[in-house]
Amino acid sequence: RRMHLVCPMNTSPSVDPQKSGHEVWEEFSHSFTPAVREVVEFAKKIPGFRDLSQHDQVSLLKAGTFEVLVVRFASLFDVTDRTVTFLGGNKYSVDTLRSMGASDLLNSMFDFSEKLINLGLSEEEMSLFTAVVLVSADRSGIENVNSVEALQETLIRALRSLITRNHPNESAIFTKLLLKLPDLRSLNNMHSEQLLAFKVH
């Protein structure tokens, strides 16, 4: 049976059956590494992030990179025509990806992307929200919880202030955004399970 890698961070879901598991992984890694580097560059620009310990910077990035990528690449999921655009530029329908073995994670990603995009956030708002997603004091392995918590609170206050200023008649937007955080955790957990399945196979 042909193997597929249905993650849009891949150039295409098709996998060369002649390649070994290691080669497939190497190729996939080449595809998603630039996106991960962009997340790190983004983190470096968050005021106060570089003041955290190196250990905590790495821990936050390890735990949150997937969630940041979900936010940044929400537009790859086209809710109207139910397609996903892979990094190679080609679009694949949900039905096609399902036939390739995509799981419920795909539907959950569509739901999340649709709700996030429907909030109609500006680039600045989306960027600040992404910083809030990354700087979460309850990630595992955080050494100095107080420092991360202080930065997290500063970022949340800045986000609330920005949203309130830009959307004076839509006070629910800030609440809706905060409610996206547990949704992202849930997607992160589902994704980790998928990775486990991938590794096992």
Partner: peptide, 27 residues
Amino acid sequence: FSDPASNLGLEDIIRKALMGNLEERPE
């Protein structure tokens, strides 16, 4: 599988991307 980021090699990518910047930090 408590640490998928390490298993994926993500930690290595993250450390390398952070490194240059961290080396420049005054202690």
